[in-house]
Computed example of a mutant assay.
Amino acid sequence: MVLLVAVGGYLAAFGRDAVADPMTTMLLAGFVVAAVLSIVGGVREAVALGPVTLPWNVLVGSAGVLVALVVAVSTVQSLWDGGATTTQFADAALLVGCSSIAWFGVQTARDSRHVDLEASPSRTRLVAIAALAVASMVGGGLVVTVV
């Protein structure tokens, strides 16, 4: 729902000029599709598309992968255009973030054990989760203060 509001706000702010660029149109469409997949996956147990039935986790996981892909494509486009060094640092941080969102989306779509909460997770897993959280906070702090 937040994605739909964000896309609507972007279109309201920039009007027709917002969709003049084909790349921007494609990225906005990707966000809309991801939002619809997420909403449908959140309210339906499964969706039948002809002979194939897609469970909710495939829809929600696909939405996560699509969001990561859209943000990554936008980030690569920004890097390709060549901005300031601080912008390039922020873009690199976004690409790292996109990889974790995509990984989580794939794990959700596969209904993998990697997204289950265990009653007593292993020490290695707890250390890895803590390291990822600290790295994310430090990276986010650097992006906020440098950019």
Rank of each mutant, 00 (worst) to 15 (best):
V2P: 04
L3H: 01
G9H: 04
Y10G: 04
Y10L: 04
G15T: 08
D17K: 07
D17R: 14
A18D: 03
A18P: 04
V19S: 07
V19G: 02
A20M: 02
D21P: 03
M23V: 15
T25W: 00
M26K: 06
M26C: 01
L27F: 03
L27S: 00
F31A: 03
F31C: 02
V36W: 06
L37Y: 09
S38P: 02
I39F: 15
I39A: 15
E45H: 14
V47E: 14
V47C: 05
V47G: 06
A48S: 15
L49Y: 04
L54A: 09
L54S: 02
P55K: 05
W56P: 03
N57K: 01
G61V: 10
G61D: 11
A63E: 09
V70N: 00
V70M: 07
S74F: 06
S74N: 08
T75S: 04
Q77I: 00
W80E: 06
D81L: 09
G83C: 03
A84M: 13
T86K: 07
T87V: 13
T87R: 15
Q88M: 06
F89A: 04
D91S: 11
D91I: 09
A92V: 15
S99N: 02
A102Y: 09
Q107L: 15
R113H: 12
H114Q: 13
V115T: 15
L117A: 08
S120W: 10
P121E: 05
R123H: 03
R123K: 05
T124M: 03
R125T: 14
L126D: 06
L126V: 05
I129Q: 15
A131C: 08
A131L: 14
L132A: 14
L132P: 08
A133D: 10
A135F: 11
S136P: 00
G139R: 04
G139S: 15
G141Y: 09
V146N: 00
V147D: 01
V147I: 11
